[in-house]
Amino acid sequence: MLYSMCFLLFIIGLYCVLVKKNMVKIVLGIVIMEYAVNLFLIMLGYRLGGIAPIVGQNDYASGAVDASFTQASVDPLPQAMVLTAIVISLGSLALMISICIRTYERYGTFDITQIRRLKG
């Protein structure tokens, strides 16, 4: 159920990309899609009542790390994936915004219906 909500958020972002005419709004649509995917990945690793998969300083000595620890902790791999995805989306977002600004300098508008020199 919750997974389908992620997909709904993804679809909202896709709708925003496809329908909106302002360049900045299109970029925001892509950001929404990125967050939908990140949320999905985080939820994949979540466990109901899970604990953080971090081993503290004296946990080995006190016996806190045992089989039940690995049973109860959430999956850390999707979190690593999300971190990587965030870094990548940061890079592409910076590039996208700078292209938006450059386009605004050239055309004087953010409206994609008026930015139409390429045809055919």
Binding site: A94, I97, S98, I101, R102, Y104, E105, G108
Partner: peptide, 16 residues
């Protein structure tokens, strides 16, 4: 660098 570059566009925009 990215933030400096993005802020560089501002003066020319407003002057336009």
């Amino acid at each position: 660098l990215v933030l400096l570059m993005l802020s560089a566009f501002r003066p020319s925009d407003s002057s336009e």
